[in-house]
Amino acid sequence: MCGIAGIMYKRNTMDAGVGNALIAMLDGCQHRGPDSTGFALYHEPQPGLLRLRFFVGDEERTEDRITRIKAKLAEFQAEIVDESRDGTTYRVQVKFSGDLKAFSYAMEHVAKVVSIGESLDIIKDIGGAHDVDATYKVDSFEGSHGIGHVRLATESDVAPEASHPFWATGFADIAIVHNGQITNYWKMRRRLEKHGFEFNTDNDSELIAVYLAEKLSNGISLRDALEDSIEDMDGTFSFLVSTKDEIGYAKDNLAAKPMVKYEDDDIIAIASEEVSLNRLFPGKPLNTVEPPPGTFNTWQKSI
């Protein structure tokens, strides 16, 4: 039960104000989800380097958790080149070139992983867009694209780890935000688990991330994966997905959850409500489109 937003600047750039744009869009639909807010941001990838972010809490056991994370990193010969503590998280950048899936599952077993990727950094916490920004300085983030989410918790807890975006555990740089409810969640989860995938929450949105990641890892294009998802998933959904260089959306056949998109020569922006899109262009009437039921689309960064 939420609001979603995503933006991509089409020209080949890494210096657009993605952070500020997402903050404005999410603040615009904060009424849809006051409990927590999250961002999936994409940095310029640096060859051979991985970004990892963990929830470590802000209480006594935090140091223990970081020690365990460091020990596990050492075990995988992941050499730390940069690190910081932000809010309830620990961020680290490492040199790593092994099997990412095995590495990330191992990391999951010692700490709560927020995201892993060459480029992806997920920031999510309790509170509104401006609260999260105050702690994590999202406003200064520049890049080419990103997605975000405001959450009203219904079935799972109000906790940072239950917030969106969700990272597709084991698959670098894939994030999703979702508004709705996947009703064949357990059926699809068990199928993926049988194929060796791990789940870290009972949140149905994590399923979408893992589902898409499996497809992508099998060489299926994001477009085809999104098309399949509309048939494979039951329930109500409007979701956004982002990778290192693409964003996309899919919407269920019943069109039960809102979604509006705006596109011009420079940007593609999608949000639950037009009021979020209008935050990017105050005072300007926009030529927007509500994607029809059962549709999907993707946009790629121009290279």
């Binding site: 409500e273 037009e274 009021v275 899109l277 209008n278 935050r279 105050p282 005072g283 300007k284 009437p285 926009l286 927007t288």
Partner: peptide, 24 residues
């Protein structure tokens, strides 16, 4: 700017012109 609830509950026969987009 696509804000919600514009003109809700109005029971008088006046003209209201919204210069832009309205929300829900």
């Amino acid at each position: 700017d696509a804000k919600h609830h514009i003109g809700v509950g109005l029971v008088h026969p006046i003209n209201v012109r919204v210069h832009g987009s309205a929300g829900y």
